[in-house]
Design a protein around this nucleic acid. Sequence first.
DNA 1: GCCAACGTTGGC
DNA 2: GCCAACGTTGGC
Length: 153
Amino acid sequence: MYWLYKTEPEECSIDDFASTPDKAIIWEGVRNYQARNFLRAATLDDLVLIYHSSCKLIGLAGIARVVKTAYPDPSQFNPGSIYFDGKSKTEQPRWSAVDLVFVEKFPALVPLDKLKRSSKLEQLALVQKGSRLSVMPVQPDEWQVMLAMAKQE
DNA sequence: GCCAACGTTGGC
DNA sequence: GCCAACGTTGGC
């Protein structure tokens, strides 16, 4: 399966993946139920487009791969974490995390407005008005369209 | 920094 | 179960 995950690059960017290519990075802190459900649907070796948001250069930055499927997000139990959730119980964790590893960084970032201008990406939640979903599925044809954009620059 | 759109909370 | 108030997201 294919996915798109949003991240603020100051928090976790494609360069963080690229600088530690052999290290699994935990994708934690997702605190939205719809996004969480998509996280839980990931299977081993799924590919993930890494999208940089809330920053100067907004768009697709590269690709990562799922190396560990959903497990309880440890940050929900850590009172020192900004992601701490006191209402989540150990015996029934509310939030999930996955582990990702670096695959590639695009030679040039694919900007959001370019994604918006493609008629083939209209179904993608990312480009829909008001959408705040941070973890979303990508259809195979959408994946191909976005990869082609990444290669041609 | 602004603000529209959205999700969550909590009183009723 | 409704819905107003509030907090958050995220592009601009």
